[in-house]
Write a protein that binds this DNA or RNA. Structure first.
Lengths: 281, 281
DNA sequence: TCGGCATGTCCGGTTAACGGACAATATACA
DNA sequence: TGTATATTGTCCGTTAACCGGACATGCCGA
């Protein structure tokens, strides 16, 4: 039995790990006694006392006087309040993009809308052999010129698009000036929608030798992010890239969207545990 | 300098505390490097590595490949998802009820609506000298007979009240049968609203010798909870109790409501720290 | 080439986390 | 009333694991 299934303890701090386990167990009950937590987690009763003391010092847990049960307080929100929804989708996209870059040799990214522009949230540049410029995460992309922005605008809800364009009109950025030309915008939207994917405009290039095309990530029917693919312009035309890889791009976008919808469905409660509350043996 | 201001470390586990501090610090940035966390928290760089490893093992943190920054993942929600809004108000009420019981000798409680009834979430029975029966937390109270239920129904939003009454009509509980008598309900609502507080019906008593009156906790103008006061019937009439303590009850209800509105305003970000991120000295 | 800055890892000393053991309290039942 | 069981709470010696100094590496600008 010694050293059974691959080493369980990769690394990490024992006491801190157990605190997380207890915190998690508290989330699965509406209030718990020391003994209940002991049974749920398999952690010794004395340790539960220590852990609850620690959590109480931080104000994350309080003891209900009347029933002597331990409850979470509103302070626990601070342990997760910094996690924003727009990061959620990037978070989910990571493994999917990882697989995608193995099928499609070109680097792909995930970008979301924020502050009147698209921002690259995740990238597989660096894992793709055909990457010219490295780090692009955090890069700002204009809405009307970039493939990401065009894909997003073409498939976001109508009121959102109108609001975005209205905002762009008062933007200082030169790129956003075209927001004043309704027919230009209409043409972009029409072309993008008829194709199902967007291309970037020559007036905006992160790198002179590359071009980009992008598909929207449609969650519940509307764009919540874009999935751009960047290729070296001399290697192929947009049509050739699309012919070869559009299926894979669309499939990845759909997979991300599916996982998003799935996660939204169950607001909190869970199944796919990474760490079991109680160790098997 | 030795043993300066009262012992700082009441109790608690050092490494686990520091993990919480780092987790909290991560919530205040959109992504952080090891060095940034070191500066934010004052914790040594080596320790930050250990802590981040631990958090990563649990899936609460991931490392963004391209930028080498550490980000929260959607898993962190599990550390607080068990905290429900209806607990929030009880949580906030605790210290306020504690002060109230010192002014009003009679025991008071906080009850919220759930599953077609009011439930006692917090109680100062046990701290009041005039308590007959002890633990009442978790006690279920019928909507149309209890003072709590009547106060809540009288001041909750109209659509909610209609929905509740509709649900009560199909309830198995004998108490809820009166939901079929619209004029009975109307009379209760009218009387309660004209007085500003509710009394319990003789047909429902947690204890034969006690009576209860209750005021609603009005958050943004509508009831989100009730604040009942229980007294021994032979000691005074409802009117006498009201005359003596209604101001204090109303003030406590208002204070709870104000704190709720305040907390709702700032969804996440914070100020009133219990634990400073970086220790002063 | 060098100095400054950031990242990552190793390892021995010290500490504080661990859990066995015991005490206290409450409840049930004979 | 006495006995048994269940639960809560605390003490304390042992030892595992946490800690941070020290070192190595890589990057950048002067």
């Amino acid at each position: 039995m010694a050293e059974n299934s691959s080493e369980k303890r990769a690394s990490g701090m024992r006491s801190a790990e157990r605190l997380l386990i207890v915190l998690r167990a508290l989330n699965l009950r509406n209030g718990a006694t020391v003994l209940e937590l002991n049974r749920d987690t398999g952690i010794s009763r004395q340790a539960i006392y220590r852990i609850l003391d620690t959590l109480r010092n931080f104000g994350y847990v309080r003891r209900q006087e009347a029933t002597d049960r331990f409850h979470l307080t509103h302070m626990v929100r601070r342990l997760s309040s910094g996690f924003k929804d727009e990061e959620w989708i990037a978070d989910i996209a990571v493994p999917i993009l990882g697989r995608l870059v193995q099928e499609v040799v070109w680097p792909t990214e995930l970008s979301t809308f924020s502050d009147n522009a698209m921002y690259i949230r995740e990238s597989t540049r660096g894992r793709s052999p055909f990457t010219i410029d490295r780090v692009a995460v955090g890069q700002r992309l204009p809405m009307l010129q970039s493939a990401s922005g065009r894909a997003y605008l073409s498939y976001c809800p109508d009121p959102e698009r109108q609001a975005i364009i209205e905002n762009l009109k008062s933007s200082d950025d030169d790129f956003d000036k075209v927001a004043h030309k309704p027919d230009y915008i209409e043409r972009i939207l029409a072309v993008t929608r008829s194709r199902g994917w967007a291309v970037g405009d020559d007036s905006f290039r992160l790198h002179p030798k590359t071009e980009t095309l992008a598909v929207p990530v449609l969650v519940n029917g509307y764009a919540r992010a874009s999935l751009p693919l960047t290729y070296i312009a001399s290697a192929a035309t947009a049509e050739q890239i699309a012919e070869r890889h559009m299926n894979q791009l669309q499939a990845a976008a759909k997979e991300i969207a599916d996982r998003m919808e799935e996660m939204q469905a169950r607001t909190d409660d869970d199944d796919d545990d990474l760490i079991p509350i109680r160790e098997a043996s």
